[in-house]
Design a protein around this nucleic acid. Structure first.
Lengths: 150, 150
DNA sequence: CTTAAACCCTAGTAAATTAGTTGCCTTACG
DNA sequence: CGTAAGGCAACTAATTTACTAGGGTTTAAG
């Protein structure tokens, strides 16, 4: 049930980009330093996000990464789907239903479906803008925020 | 975000035991055959469930496994916690909060907390009895149920 | 009392996933 | 042209997952 660090790092980088939205690209070294992780690793995650058209890049000096759309229009599910591959808790309730029919299959399926529905609900409804705004607000109140996990 | 096969197999075995609740122990070969998996592997999972007092065993010939309590009193969270170790999607929102304070920590924390709340809600509210009853009912309607994942 | 069915336990292992690192190439601003 | 930046591929170490193997112990039944 754990979310991978890919997802955690990638999501936080997207939130960083949302905070900087409209102010030009943010470079990899800056994004990596924000979370205290290596540039090489974060780069891979950002490349996935670029493939999925969530971020765009500006090459050359003064370049960096930026969101392709307004953070208010970007939900968490889209981001996590790119980073995680899929946000399905079990394959048989993902977008590809495989061999499990909805009529009836294994005894745990009703649980999996309910869980997946609730999870998707949160992921779809939560926008990157909300998370970015919350974080900026907390910091402005002088709360001891760190974006680094220990 | 995936649920491990441990969890899937273990949970389904518990549902099998719920269906047989009150009719004496069910043997490992029977439980394993129900899902088409090896006895050795399922045995490990059942041992975890025994450690957690969810199932009890009867040794010797005609022995097997049985639930320690009424399936109506047993929720899915308790079962998955034993099988999965923890049902937390990230460590910092588990029962052990580690170094992340609730005041403010990383930018993604509000999302993690919301997600975890919704997940726990489903896991706590769903009883094994519900799942067992649903399954028995589906089968009695002649639906093509299989407890085996393909 | 012997046998066989059943649980008990430890250890090992192959495959997959995760979490990175390394190194070199391309682009573009000044 | 030099340097700062992203692009890309390959490799690797550690961990987790999903098992398998094999021997030990208990107990009901014949």
């Amino acid at each position: 049930m754990k979310l991978s660090t890919r997802s955690r790092y990638g999501l936080k980088a997207v939130i960083d980009l949302a905070i900087a939205y409209g102010t030009g690209p943010v470079s990899l070294p800056v994004l990596a330093a924000s979370q205290g992780i290596s540039e090489g690793y974060l780069e891979q995650l950002l490349r996935e996000l670029k493939k999925g058209s969530v971020v765009d890049t500006v090459r050359g000096a003064q370049g960096g990464y930026e969101l392709t759309c307004d953070p208010a229009e970007l939900n968490v599910q889209r981001v996590l789907n790119l980073l995680e591959g899929s946000t399905a808790i079990v394959d048989c309730v993902g977008t590809e239903h495989h061999n499990c029919t909805s009529a009836c299959s294994c005894s745990a399926r009703p649980l999996f479906l309910k869980l997946q529905t609730r999870i998707n609900d949160v992921l779809v409804r939560t926008t990157i803008r909300e998370l970015a705004d919350d974080y900026v607000q907390q910091k402005s109140r002088g709360n001891p925020c760190k974006n680094v996990c220990e």
